[in-house]
Design a protein around this nucleic acid. Structure first.
Lengths: 373, 373
DNA sequence: ATGAAAGCGCTAACAC
DNA sequence: GTGTTAGCGCTTTCAT
């Protein structure tokens, strides 16, 4: 409560200039720290600014510099720790370079994403980081590109867009993980994902998400390599809310030819799936094995601790922001992109399938259950 | 790839006006949907805009309306699911009213918070939601108030500020929870919080966070009521990173007169504390009981499931955004604030203290261990 | 209903 | 080094 309790009108450069008895331009130069200003004037202006508690209007500044020092971030669900962590990586990095972050949540809804991107462009963000809900419908992302502002994709690629993509190699790690499950004797591997898709996943289905496509591709490759038929009937897409995930899990486990291992596509899905398994009174890994994507702290606290595919999520956020800001500044890619490697962390939730211990193999002849090649 | 691959200059109202052969003012009216415009002109303008794929410059618009339709959100750690969920509540609500959210992370660092608030004010946000790191040092928040823009506080109050505070009643629920622990036979109740404080918590210590103050106040009251001495030696503040939390937990459990129950001030702390307990090979609740603030999905998946104080975090986000937007729109509080009640959810992690089962009570005489009052 | 012109707060030419 | 004058893209009087 020093002096001014100014409400309405903000104090402007003009006010400061007047108080320091210099021209508006000179005041602006001193305040904005550009151009040539004598020491005397600088001091007077700064003093006046201090006295009047002047604050620059960044909006006005942005208007004629064309730079807002703001980047837009569009994610599917900030509540999902995956994005929470990535966002942390982004904001940390942005702050370091003097950028702010406008965050938009889309609920993995395409319409919301299109809208969010448009709004952010209208707000003249300097660049955009998007985790696109769809890898195929990308008109709105194309528009970003056309607006002349850089775009970096997080987690998922977008077909036909020249945008830089920050994501771990999902096909590779999925292949590894699947191989591990196969080696453990599993054949009935279920995969649950929130990915919205009109039809179930069949041979040749083109998926809308590069991320999930790659994971399934890795699985298919592992199966193919071992000459085993891929269990298309155990792939569950469109697993939206907690209830539908629970239902899907129950069904996968209670059906005639049940899954012997459940692979959860992210931490949120895992939570619901594990809840369902718990309700079913099934024990992991005795009755059913479990594997999830993303390694969160709680994965070590369950009994047994969970085997996971860990992604360097925070680093991905950092990488995305770094790449974007580099592009905003018009700098070229600095050769060595940091390796964003996902890792399979074996803990206790994957064991041999239940059937493997039973006297007779009720299945089709699919070769020995021993570890393969 | 229809026609324009315009790079540099954006198309403006002037361009649209020219194309529609009307004045700039008329075009602006049609586009901005204000003032009086004839049907004929409106159509021509809209058609021209469409053709040129005109997009309004929201910065310019904000400049002379004085409204940016953006609210600033300042939290300690977006990575913490507590804030993740609250942020979701905020963004959902904001979007519904046509507002965007600029997110700033402070790492619970005062300097970062002061800076973030300043930057957001400079960017001319229409209002601010802050989860203040400190409840006592509030000059920067005072400045928000002086700028004439509304401010809503999340989780924690700030001394001497007229700002609306959205938070569950912590003193009450803490009292309830402590009473429950006391009734279960516990006397050695440990409390771990990230709150930064220069000195340890002693009788009469003034804490910097209303949230934590209230919790401790509730604990003190419960102890006082049962005439038991409060275990000041078991309060751990400044539990910053995962390691320091683990260390604190170990110490609390391995010391001469150890804690029989650990209360974790939030989910992140709980994760580290549980890790430490696991490393110590202690079993819950046989060897040590456990209680945490916030109810996250994983709390039901541990063995045993965790007893928690659940806060309506998402709803708090919604309430904060609703209150802020109401103030921005200059509307009065609508009488009935929605009840933001925290609840004690008893699951399996609290049992009788270990000592209660041992032959002799090695402690000071503190009355019978049976349930009281 | 429409247009001319002023102005939001700042930066950027351009003189001097 | 300093001041004057234009804008940035939009909204908003104020005439007509």
């Amino acid at each position: 409560m020093s002096s001014n309790t100014s409400r309405r009108r903000d104090v402007t450069v003009a006010d400061v200039a007047r108080a320091a008895s210099v021209s508006k331009a000179q005041a602006a130069r001193a305040l904005g720290n550009y151009g040539a200003v004598s020491e005397d004037v600088r001091e007077r202006v700064l003093a006046a600014a201090e006295e009047l508690s002047y604050r620059p209007n960044e909006l006005a500044r942005s208007m004629n510099t064309g730079k807002s020092h703001t980047i837009g971030v569009v994610v599917g669900d900030i509540e999902n720790p995956h994005f929470g962590l990535a966002t942390r990586g982004i904001t940390d990095t942005a702050k370091k370079s003097g950028y702010n972050v406008i965050l938009a949540n889309t609920d993995e809804e395409r319409a919301a994403e299109v809208d969010a991107v448009q709004v952010l462009l209208d707000k003249r963000v300097d660049g955009l980081i998007v985790a696109p809900a769809s890898s195929t419908e990308t008109d709105h992302l194309q528009r970003v590109y056309e607006s002349g502002r850089p775009l970096v994709l997080l987690d998922r690629a977008a077909r036909g867009l020249p945008a830089e993509v920050i994501a771990a190699d999902m096909a590779g790690i999925s292949y590894d993980a699947t191989k591990y499950l196969l080696d453990s004797g599993h054949r009935r591997i279920a995969f649950i994902s929130t990915l919205k898709n009109a039809s179930p996943f069949l041979d040749g289905t083109q998926l809308d998400s590069s991320q999930i496509s790659e994971r399934l591709e890795g699985m298919l490759r592992a199966f193919a390599e071992t000459k085993l038929p891929f269990p298309y009937d155990l792939v569950r897409l469109n697993a939206g809310d907690a209830d539908s995930i629970r239902d899907a899990t129950r069904e996968l486990l209670l059906r005639a030819d049940p899954a012997t291992v459940v692979v959860a596509s992210d931490g949120l899905i895992a939570l619901s799936a594990l809840g369902a398994i718990q309700d079913l009174q099934l024990s992991i890994p005795k009755d059913v094995s479990f594997l999830m994507y993303d390694d969160f702290a709680w994965a070590r606290l369950t009994t047994p601790p969970l085997t996971v595919v860990a992604q360097p999520v925070y680093d991905m956020g950092v990488a995305a922001a770094t790449a974007l800001i580099r592009q905003i500044d018009g700098r070229k890619a600095s050769g060595t992109a940091p390796a964003l490697q996902a890792r399979l962390i074996k803990r206790g939730s994957v064991g041999p399938p239940r059937e493997a211990f039973q006297p007779a193999q009720a299945y089709t002849a699919e070769g020995p259950t021993a570890a393969l090649g």
